[in-house]
Amino acid sequence: MSARVTDQADGLRRLLGQAPVRVVAVAGMGPGAGATTAAMSLGAALAQQGKDVLLLDEHHPKVRSVCDVWALGPRGTLADVASRRLRIDQATASAVCGVQVLPASPGATIDPRTLWPRGIVLVDATFDGEGCLSPLAQGADELLLVLQPHPAAITSAYAGIKRLHRAHAMKQLRFLLNGVADAGTAQQVMHNLAQAASRYLALSLLPVGWVRTDPWLSDAARLRQTVVEAFAASAAAVDFRAIADDMGRWTWRTPARPAVFPQALAA
Rank of each mutant, 00 (worst) to 15 (best):
D182N: 13
H168E: 06
A186R: 08
D214C: 13
R249L: 11
E130G: 05
L143A: 02
V211Y: 01
A196S: 10
S218V: 11
H165F: 14
A186V: 01
R199A: 14
H191I: 10
A152P: 03
V238C: 14
R199F: 06
E229M: 13
R224W: 04
R163L: 11
H191M: 15
M247P: 03
F240P: 00
A196Y: 05
R249S: 05
A233F: 06
A232P: 00
V211M: 04
F240M: 13
C132F: 03
S134L: 02
T185G: 02
L193G: 04
A236W: 09
A235N: 10
R249I: 01
F175V: 12
P135H: 07
A196M: 07
L203V: 00
L133D: 07
A221M: 11
H168I: 07
A256K: 15
L143K: 11
A256P: 13
A140P: 11
L164G: 01
P215N: 07
P215R: 13
H191P: 01
V146P: 05
K162L: 07
A220S: 06
A242H: 15
E142T: 12
W216R: 15
A235T: 10
R174T: 11
N178Q: 11
R163Q: 09
A125T: 05
T254R: 15
D219G: 01
L122A: 00
A235S: 10
A202W: 08
A169G: 05
M190H: 03
A137L: 06
A169H: 14
P151G: 02
D214V: 14
L144C: 09
G209N: 14
L143T: 08
P151H: 03
A197T: 07
A235V: 11
Y200V: 09
G119K: 05
R212S: 08
Q138C: 12
V227E: 00
A202H: 12
K162T: 04
A244H: 03
V238Y: 09
A152S: 09
S134D: 14
L136Q: 12
H168A: 03
A157S: 03
